[in-house]
Nucleic acid binder design. Structure first.
Lengths: 148, 148
DNA sequence: ATCTAATACTTGCAAATTACAAGTAAAAAA
DNA sequence: TTTTTTACTTGTAATTTGCAAGTATTAGAT
């Protein structure tokens, strides 16, 4: 059995580089963390602060401030939950949606370029593998969860 | 064609969590960045500061300071290059090697646990896929390199 | 051989990011 | 109704980051 860690160390580092570049699309200068926040707000249905913070494994106080700056940039909106006045529902503004989509597009472009170095069979195998990996990490009790 | 980005977003986030936990082995409290530095110093042959900083895509000034703190922790050693007095050669101390190995072991343990949710065939497929992915990213001109 | 330019690194800032502690306000439980 | 819990915000302080500017050494140009 070879050294698994080696493989994953290289992979995650490379993806780190990819993510770094991705985010300054559309004139805005978005940090990596912020791009993850935009992504999750877009993905989840009427999410609260807590929900997103937990998904991303970010401390809620840090998250609170990150959201504040996204609001200042006019990318995110906070709406009080009518059923529970403690809760703030997060959503993207029109600009937020635009930025989120720009980043998404940019990322997919990069990824497609990476996959262009493979043939159709390899491509499908790799995609299936990533899915499998995600499922296995989700099952794992020891790691990969934002627990603490 | 499905949304590639979705897949990778989830994967990298999960690996982020994994990496976060990994590093506080052996009594020392090592940050993620520092663990990457230890890893690369161990891997490369008599590397200079520049070399490691470039591999990791870190700004050299930031890197300089990170190395300073690793030296203070007695995990890393700097030796002046006899052929070029500007250059510092980095190496791990005995403790550094120990810590690097602890982290490596810990990571492999986590990864093995993740892979334990797959059968032998799946496992091999996934590993082969990651390799392929790494190669493709290396080939890519557009992304995944520490360029700026 | 000497002067200039490039390289390898270090320090001075200042900005951004982080998390713990302590706070407010609202809802749920006792 | 009182107490506890939950959702979130702010104070503060530590850490991390990178640009600008510095030193020292080597390589290149004349």
């Amino acid at each position: 059995m070879e050294n698994l860690r080696e493989l994953f160390q290289v992979m995650t580092r490379r993806f780190g580089f990819l993510n770094k570049n991705c985010c300054s699309t559309g004139g805005y200068d978005i940090s990596l963390v912020q791009s993850h926040i935009l992504y999750e707000i877009d993905k989840q249905h009427k999410p609260s602060m807590q929900q997103i913070a937990e998904t991303l494994g970010t401390d809620i106080t840090t998250f609170s401030r990150q959201v504040q700056s996204l609001i200042k940039m006019n990318l995110v909106k906070k709406t009080p939950d009518p059923d529970d006045k403690r809760v703030s529902i997060l959503s993207l503004t029109t600009e937020g949606v635009y930025i989120a989509e720009s980043i998404d597009q940019q990322m997919n472009e990069y990824l497609n370029e990476v996959f262009s170095h493979m043939n159709e069979f390899e491509r499908e195998t790799v995609i299936r593998s990533i899915k499998l990996l995600n499922e296995s990490m989700a099952k794992s009790s020891k790691c990969c969860n934002p627990l603490e």
